[in-house]
């Protein structure tokens, strides 16, 4: 792939191209600046990708540099859940409950092939084919396991996504039900 072909999700910033109200917009920016720089992940890992997730949390890659500060063991205190690893049938209700226990606003990163689509275990009788069938996903990070840099990139994409959110006056996800694949399931 050529460097120029790389698509860096430019549409994200375009969402706000139409302009925003001065006062409310500034307030939004302030809140988003704070929120996007303090996204604490949940300590959640089921398999191999979880080890890489730990490695990204450790000193060499250190996601605390970008505001992912510490992982929280309780879903009540976490802002983002990084689904690192395979989700199987028996785990599906648990993941759903963990997500439901997190306080809004909450985000989901699907890390690795398994979380995205079932990955190498797609054909298995006991593996969920993608966590987006259970919970809505914000960022997909492909790989098996993804490189630490890829995960960092994915996490920073999430920050960009948070930065264009609006807090005051408008609804963020104003999609009709039929257009949103997450609602159908």
């Amino acid at each position: 792939m050529k460097y120029e072909d790389f698509n860096d999700n430019e549409y994200l910033e375009e969402l706000r191209k139409g302009g925003v109200d001065v006062i409310v917009g500034k307030l939004d920016e302030l809140i988003n600046w704070g929120r996007s720089n303090s996204v604490w992940p949940l300590t959640f890992a089921t398999s191999c990708c979880g080890i890489e997730f730990m490695a990204v949390g450790a000193a060499r890659y250190d996601f605390a540099r970008f505001g992912f500060e510490v992982t929280r063991a309780s879903p009540r205190q976490a802002d983002v859940i990084v689904v690192a690893g395979t989700i199987v049938h028996k785990m599906a209700p648990v993941l759903k409950r963990l997500y439901d226990q997190m306080a809004d606003p909450k985000y989901v990163i699907a890390m690795g092939g398994c979380a995205i689509s079932g990955g190498p275990f797609k054909k298995s009788y006991h593996v969920v084919r993608g966590v987006n069938t259970i919970i809505p996903v914000d960022v997909y990070v492909p790989g098996c396991p993804p490189r630490p840099e890829a995960l960092l990139y994915g996490m920073m994409q999430l920050q960009r996504k948070i930065k264009v959110e609006r807090f005051f006056g408008v609804v963020n996800h104003k999609q009709p039900k039929s257009e949103n694949p997450d609602n159908e399931k």
Partner: peptide
């Protein structure tokens, strides 16, 4: 157990 049972042995058969 079983929260990460991926059915590897059955998959291997195919």
């Amino acid at each position: 157990c079983g929260y990460i049972h991926r059915g590897i042995e059955k998959m291997c058969e195919s």
